[in-house]
């Protein structure tokens, strides 16, 4: 499903990270742990195609994204990868439902209102579909971000520190929801975090230092 081979990653031409081999099978769930500044985010952004690969291969669904042009990566990401950011990044001027539709619009995927409403329903926030992000609680906003990430039934979901700003109770809830919807969507899950509370949920855990 996802595999990295001898990938050299970094910002621009400057290598930050020399990856050995990483493989996640279909529906697999993997946690990358490590202190902040250890390059976890660089790995996530490279896998997402937001950063160009300096050398080596990153293969998602048998497609090597290292060879793709920037706009090809944009298209690929829009269709096959869902991302959950630490700061959520909801568009403030758009309603909850429109934030989901924006994901389809931006990626050029056919806009499916039913599917968006279904996801909101699944995450128990269907009554907030017309609310602006500013009117949501932190937990509600988090669920909108999760709904958006799985909207297109991606093959890979990436999450960057999804729980680090949450208390223990919410941390548990959020990680369970993410793992659950990823499973339902049949997506592989790659989470980068320094939050040790969620480690017990994962069978595949990689300490980032190991890849350096």
């Amino acid at each position: 499903m996802l595999s990295l081979e001898n990938a050299v990653l970094g910002y621009g031409k400057k290598p930050v990270l020399h990856m050995g081999t990483l493989r996640i099978g279909p529906g697999g769930q993997c946690l990358i742990s490590g202190a902040s500044g250890s390059g976890k985010t660089t790995l996530l952004y490279s896998v997402a195609g937001l950063l160009p690969v300096i050398s080596g291969r990153i293969t998602i669904n048998d497609t090597d994204i290292a060879d793709m042009s920037e706009s090809e990566r944009d298209h690929f990401r829009g269709k096959h990868i869902g991302i959950i950011y630490q700061t959520l990044h909801l568009v403030r001027s758009l309603s909850v439902l429109d934030n989901l539709m924006l994901a389809s619009y931006a990626s050029g995927v056919k806009q499916n209102r039913e599917r968006a409403l279904h996801m909101l329903h699944r995450l128990h926030i269907e009554d907030k579909q017309d609310a602006l992000p500013g009117e949501l609680s932190q937990g509600q906003a988090q669920r909108v971000a999760i709904a958006r990430a799985v909207l297109h039934r991606p093959s890979l979901i990436l999450a960057d520190e999804p729980t680090s700003s949450l208390d223990d109770k919410n941390c548990e809830r959020v990680i369970e929801v993410i793992m659950q919807v990823a499973k339902e969507a049949g997506a592989a899950l790659l989470i980068a975090t320094h939050d040790n509370r969620i480690r017990p949920h994962f069978s595949q855990v990689m300490h980032f230092e190991e890849f350096k």
Binding site: D74, H75, R77, A106, S107
Partner: peptide
């Protein structure tokens, strides 16, 4: 927002 749209797949 703009970076987000890019990350959502907008060219």
């Amino acid at each position: 927002d703009i970076a987000l749209m890019r990350s959502l797949g907008a060219t």
